[in-house]
Design a protein around this nucleic acid. Sequence first.
DNA 1: TACGCGTGGCA
DNA 2: TTGCCAAGCGT
Length: 366
Amino acid sequence: MFNDGNILIPDTELIAEFNKKLKFWYIKNHRKLLWRETTDPYKIWLSEIILQQTRVAQGTPYYEKFLLNYPTVFDLAAADERDVLRLWQGLGYYSRARNMHYTARQVVNEYGGKFPETAAGLSKLKGLGNYTAAAIASFSFGEAVAAIDGNVYRVMSRIFGIQSDMLSNQGKKEFALMAGQLVPSDDPATYNQAMIEFGALQCVPVSPACHICPVTDMCFAFAHNMQNQLPVKVKKLKVKQRFFNYIVVESNGQLAMKERPSKDIWQGLYDFYLLESTAPIEDPDDLQSLISSAGLLQQGILKMTSKIYTHILTHQRLHVSFWWLEISETNTIDLPAGLTFYTKEQIESLPKPILIDTFLKEEKYL
DNA sequence: TACGCGTGGCA
DNA sequence: TTGCCAAGCGT
């Protein structure tokens, strides 16, 4: 192994050994898929576009009906975009279909109906990124370039112990460097197919069957029992947007509060009657219907405080509005479950989220 | 660079 | 039920 700064590139003997075992596994275990029985770049291209982020079982019927309706790139180029989209219907990621149609016309009009024969040339076409361009280049034209899809990332990461984030740019560079060392000049097409198929069938994301794997003897993940940790994908934590509409029920100077339930933020702290919505509510009428559907008796004047509070948590952004519901002294009210009236003194001593505390102070209640 | 893009299968 | 994807790409 030699060190390239960030990753260890295995020596040529180890690479040769891995490739040999991989190829043997592939010959024995690969699926017979329609698009593997041709080198026609149009068909390979069609299959690769369809299979982007899509399972074989889901994409196969589409591959067949597209070939039936548009047997050649000329037929696809001559079609109306609307018809192409109609045929794509149900497969999702519809820009794939639009780009494919666009590219078919470009191939016909600017390339005389022939696809470029290198990954670099193919990359210039719309809808073809690094992976798809490399896949077509190797499958159709035998170019010795590595086609790195999600399966290949996983296999390389586990076998050779690459622990860089496969979603980061730096990580992608390291994987690409490794992949470039692995791809053989002899029959790169079968090698690429084999890597992808190996990832799809044997080195699967969850609970791979390592006891029947032919390369455990050279597998970093197996040796370190890290199959479930690799590949590393640093998930960008997604900030969820939530819209809170608090009903501050007031009666004789007391406020109705309740303890926060488990399995949500602020567990054990106290807040008001909460109606959560998927979008901000600005019209009191909308809130009224929400309230009545929730069974809260409407016996007072609902008044929104002017301001909408934004409260930021690690993984949530809360957009919070407060609505005062004043109950006149002569009325009684059936409070929803969990709510209890508390005096100002009691409220002062209750544990509350900062947001609630701030609100009460700004309203000069506390 | 980070994010939106669709659908169906699975635990 | 809900989250996590599955042969990525364009912006």
